[in-house]
Amino acid sequence: MLNCKDVVVKFGGVRGLDGVSLTFERGISGLVGPNGAGKTTMLNVLSGFVSPSSGRVEFDGLDLLSMNPTGRARWGLRRTFQQEQSVDSLTVWENLLVAAENLGSRPADARQIADLVGLTELDRPVPLLSMLERRLLELGRTIMGRPRILLLDEPVAGLPEAESLMFAPLIERICEEFSLTVVLVDHDMDFVTRACSNIAVLDFGRLIAYGDCVSVLSDPAVEAAYLGVSNES
């Protein structure tokens, strides 16, 4: 159970997050909102790249804010970025290996994870991969060692519809296999509703709705802030 309490982030005079309190249960939760709502800032706070000016972040009673980003990654809090971060100068296998080595996993486990996400021909250099393969590689790198929390920042951005469809079941399988708490940020509402059981909606740094897909999507506040806009356009 990942628990955020009154998280405030200030960028100069602007409040990126304005007192957000919410709890992500085990399983896949979505985090959505219009541009600039604070979704990525939220992930940055959770993974330690941004320090909140006040508030608490706990996982099963453990204070996450006391660890630095590297420490959090080693402990099991993993994340992806909007721009995927595979190392171009290494091969697929070396990319998996470098994650395994630093996240306390053995090469044999890295091999299993390659099978799990469905990567083959591991000796190819990364620049030759398709976008789908790069996204799969990125996912594989985040679940080395002993993952506990997975933060996915637009994991299917840049993928064609047909390919992003196969991502939801994969994330579900991974979530079950490692019994993870997954937070998924995406613009693609179809994808989010397919993958997630719960959805949190942010707007202007505030939490405006949180609950299961059906109730959130029919929430008038959400309609007004986010979906209404996108329906009109």
Binding site: N44, F49, N68, P69, Q83, Q85
Partner: peptide, 10 residues
Amino acid sequence: KRTYEMRPSA
């Protein structure tokens, strides 16, 4: 205190 450059290179 270490600060992080939060702009991943393209």
